[in-house]
C-alpha cells in the first residue's frame, strides 16, 4: 500500500528544489526531514505556537499547517535563508543577539520570520505593533521584552541604513 507521490518544485532559500512527495506530507516535515533544513522547528503541530513559521512569497506562514504540495511553484524562505551568503548575520539577526532576544533558541526561527515579515511591511513599528506581530509566536523563555527590544533595534538600524 504505497502512497501516491506528487511532483513539486519549490524555491527554497533561493535554490530551486524538486521532489516527489506524498499528499499528507506537511511542508515543515519536508523542509526538516527531506531537505535537512532543521532550523525550522515544530512546536505544536496545530498552528498555535509559531515555531515553524517560514516566509512563503515573503509572507509569514506556519509550515505545520501547510502541505508540501501546497508550496509547489512558491518561494520559501527559512531561517537558514536569512543570513548573508557568507554567513554574516542580517541586521535583524544581529539585533536579536545584541538585545538578547533569544534564550533556548527553539522559538527563535519563527520569531525572526515573524519579525522579518513585520519589518518588510512596516519599517517603523510601535512596541504595540511589534507585540501584535509576534503575538502568534509563543516563547517560554524570554517573556518577550528583549525580543520586542531586538525588533525595535533592528527597525532603527535599518532606518539608519536607508537614510
Amino acid at each position: 500500500m504505497s502512497e501516491a507521490l506528487y511532483p513539486i518544485t519549490v524555491e527554497v532559500n533561493g535554490v530551486q528544489r524538486t521532489a516527489q512527495v506524498p499528499a499528507r506530507l506537511s511542508l515543515v516535515d519536508w523542509l526538516r526531514d527531506e531537505l535537512r533544513l532543521t532550523g525550522t522547528h515544530v512546536g505544536c503541530e496545530h498552528g498555535v505556537c509559531g515555531a515553524c513559521s517560514i516566509l512563503l512569497d515573503g509572507e509569514a506562514v506556519r509550515a505545520c499547517l501547510m502541505y508540501a504540495v501546497q508550496a509547489d511553484a512558491h518561494r520559501v524562505t527559512t531561517v537558514e535563508g536569512l543570513a548573508a551568503p557568507d554567513g554574516g548575520l542580517s541586521v535583524l539577526q544581529d539585533s536579536f543577539c545584541e538585545a538578547h532576544g533569544l534564550q533556548c533558541g527553539y522559538c527563535t526561527s519563527g520569531m525572526l520570520v515573524a519579525a522579518q515579515a513585520l519589518l518588510d511591511a512596516n519599517p517603523r513599528p510601535s512596541d504595540d505593533e511589534i507585540r501584535a506581530a509576534i503575538g502568534g509566536n509563543l516563547c517560554r523563555c524570554t517573556g518577550y521584552q528583549q525580543i520586542v527590544e531586538a525588533i525595535r533595534l533592528a527597525a532603527e538600524r535599518l532606518q539608519e541604513k536607508r537614510a
Binding site: T38, E80, A83, C97, T108
Partner: peptide, 10 residues
Amino acid sequence: EDYRFLTGAG
C-alpha cells in the same frame, strides 16, 4: 551561543 540559534544551526 546565539549565532547557531539565529542561523538555524542549533
